[in-house]
Simulated assay, not measured.
Amino acid sequence: MSFTPTDRPRRLRTDGIRPLVSETSVDAQDLIAPVFVDETTDERVPISSMPGHERVPVNEAAARVEEIRETGVEAVIVFGIPETKDDVGSEAYAADGVVQRGISEITDNTDAYVIGDVCLCEYTDHGHCGVLEPHAHDDPTLTVKNDETLDLLADIAVSQAEAGADMVAPSSMTDGMVGAIREGLDEAGFEHIPIMSYAAKYESAFYGPFREAADGAPAFGDRRHYQMDPANRREAKREVALDAEEGADVLMVKPALPYLDIVRDVRENSDKPVAAYNVSGEYAMIHAAAEKGWLDLEATAYESLLSIKRAGADLILTYFAEDIAERL
């Protein structure tokens, strides 16, 4: 005697009905593409660990963004590689710094929505995200001086707004960073500039390729004293709530795929837009598997982004932006 099912979900999986009942979608307008602007070169430099991406000189930043916009992606985030670095990352907030010049080049010549990454690690000679405690070079357990870093982050945000940024995105996980930046922007007359905070940023093994791309690896020690412990979920709720209270307009989780539970928590506990950063390691490992013939690159990338949207993200910062947008 054979069993006959009374409920048949497969009825809604045929080609005609399947798109009509699909619960989640990814659109080019959901995606933010990264752009690396490099003042140490006068030609484009491929990033070996991130196939398809490259550092571009300042005078090619707008052309690079136009290539992205041709795929349907309208938003970009700008990272900079400066020619000189020092212990306080002064090039990060200099009016003529590489990111400021890159932002101006892009906003003057394109209609892209431009986001500035607000951090110091790419600009400090020690590679940490702020002003260091005394003797930190000798004792890696010493960490970034939190409150002394806040003024610098505000200065970076204001300088990027002056250069033409449409949004700023603090990523240093400094306590109070959103409040300090909001205050700095408002005092400088940029009340209209929104803040997308890296509200839950974990100390992750998935950042390696980015650190090569942006030349931002720590010269010693690591960032566990200010980035979050991957073991902690409840702490993320606290971090996100603090940033929301301080005035964050968009709340970002980084990385994305290993932290989909955190993306869901943020979605369920906040009515603000939620972003997720599909980071360089996530991108690189899919590319590596595809090169081996083990995965289909485009299909796996799309499924990954779909899972991030399904978890609750409204926006996705991803190195797959162009490839997926072209598919869409």
Rank of each mutant, 00 (worst) to 15 (best):
M1Y: 13
M1R: 14
F3I: 15
T4L: 15
R10S: 05
L12F: 12
L20H: 06
V21T: 14
S22L: 11
S22A: 15
V26M: 10
A33C: 15
D38A: 03
D38S: 09
T41D: 05
D42K: 11
D42M: 04
E43R: 15
V45Q: 11
V45D: 00
S48T: 15
G52H: 10
R55M: 12
A62W: 14
A63V: 14
A63K: 07
A63E: 15
E67D: 10
R69C: 08
I77P: 01
D87V: 15
S90E: 12
A94N: 03
V98S: 01
R101G: 04
G102A: 05
I103F: 08
I106A: 01
I106D: 01
N109M: 01
D111M: 06
A112Q: 00
D117P: 10
D117H: 12
C121G: 05
T124F: 09
G127S: 13
C129F: 09
G130Y: 08
V131G: 04
A136V: 12
A136L: 10
L142S: 13
D147W: 11
T149Y: 02
L153I: 12
A157Y: 05
Q160L: 09
E162H: 11
A165I: 06
A169F: 09
S172I: 11
M173E: 00
D175N: 03
M177Y: 05
M177S: 14
G184Q: 01
L185S: 03
D186N: 15
E187V: 06
F190Q: 10
E191G: 01
E191C: 00
Y198H: 03
A205D: 13
Y207L: 13
G208H: 07
F210E: 07
D215M: 12
G216L: 13
P218K: 02
F220D: 06
G221D: 04
D222I: 11
Q227R: 02
D229N: 14
A231D: 13
A236L: 01
E239G: 10
E239V: 14
A241W: 08
A244G: 10
G247L: 04
G247E: 05
A248M: 11
L251M: 11
P255H: 09
Y259V: 14
L260V: 13
V274T: 07
S280W: 10
G281V: 08
Y283N: 04
D296W: 06
E303L: 07
E303G: 09
S304I: 12
G312K: 12
I316G: 07
T318V: 01
